[in-house]
């Protein structure tokens, strides 16, 4: 197994985590889903220079990770190949926005640097929240919940199939990469001249697979909707969690927690 495959493989193995048990795992998937969406929306809504306001938002995921018994470290480890992409967003801000915004002793911090950090943190926070959702909810319950919330069936089916086939596709890619390296020893990476045929092959293989897969669905009586495993009814604790978590996120969003804390110490 090469490095990339290993990383992607681990990412697709979320179901081990989702099969554990904790107060968070036991919540209704729809409650978790809606609460996560609320968190993401609120996090994204911070102003681009509002770094101090944003940081306390971290409390949400950290607390929930604690409750669910999943170490935060696992999240960063599993997401290690996606994280750099998220972090890369905003990397150019410091070059465009040079107006000094903050004076830290002798160093003037420009608006660009602040907005870069804000963007990166937003990305990381949202990633953590989504990871938590996936790590505490089996994919089929999540899909069932999405359908209950009237998300179009096509989208949900797509999500389900993507989940199932990410692993298969990466394996295919890995096999191709290995086959390449076995015949091109001593070469680092894949030579640019082979990229085209590599991608082409992968595309064709995916298309073949998609076609056969769809045939297999049709042959077993599929017509425009999936039957998901039934999920348990939405109960009071789920409602309490949903309302409670959203209130907490709102609090973190609109009450300047950092400033208040600071004012306790600095008079």
């Amino acid at each position: 197994m090469n490095k990339m495959e290993k990383a992607l493989h681990e990412l697709s193995e979320m179901d081990d985590l989702a099969a554990q048990s904790s107060p968070i795992h036991r919540l209704h998937p729809a409650a978790k889903l809606l609460s996560t969406i609320a968190y993401i929306l609120l996090t994204v809504s911070f102003h681009k220079y509002d770094l101090t306001g944003l940081i306390p938002m971290l409390l949400g995921p950290v607390l929930l990770f604690q409750l669910s018994g999943i170490p935060v470290r696992t999240c960063f480890y599993k997401l290690r190949i996606v994280l750099p992409l998220v972090m890369a967003v905003g990397l150019f801000n410091p070059f465009f926005d040079r107006a000094p915004l903050l004076q830290l002793g002798p160093v003037a911090v420009s608006g660009g640097v602040i907005s870069m950090l804000t963007l990166m943190l937003k990305g990381v926070f949202c990633l953590m929240a989504s990871f938590l959702l996936m790590a505490t909810t089996p994919i089929d319950s999540l899909c069932a919940a999405l359908r209950k919330l009237h998300v179009p069936g096509l989208l949900v089916t797509l999500l389900l199939l993507t989940y199932r086939y990410v692993g298969v596709m990466t394996e295919e890619l890995a096999v191709m990469t290995d086959a390449y390296h076995l015949r091109a020893p001593g070469q680092k990476g894949i030579h640019v001249s082979a990229w085209g045929s590599f991608l082409g092959q992968l595309l064709l293989r995916s298309m073949d697979r998609a076609q056969e897969l769809y045939a297999s669905m049709l042959l077993r009586g599929y017509h425009d909707h999936f039957h998901y495993a039934g999920i348990r009814p939405f109960r009071l604790p789920d409602g309490l969690y949903l309302v409670g978590s959203i209130l907490a996120f709102l609090l973190l969003r609109f009450v300047p927690v950092a400033a208040l804390l600071g004012s306790l110490f600095v008079r």
């Binding site: 994919i139 089929d140 389900l160 297999s216 039957h227």
Partner: peptide, 17 residues
């Protein structure tokens, strides 16, 4: 078989049809 078994678990695949 990979193209046949498209649901997340064996059980769900079997109950599909």
């Amino acid at each position: 078989s990979d193209n046949q078994m498209f649901m997340p678990t064996v059980y769900e695949d079997m109950i599909f049809a």
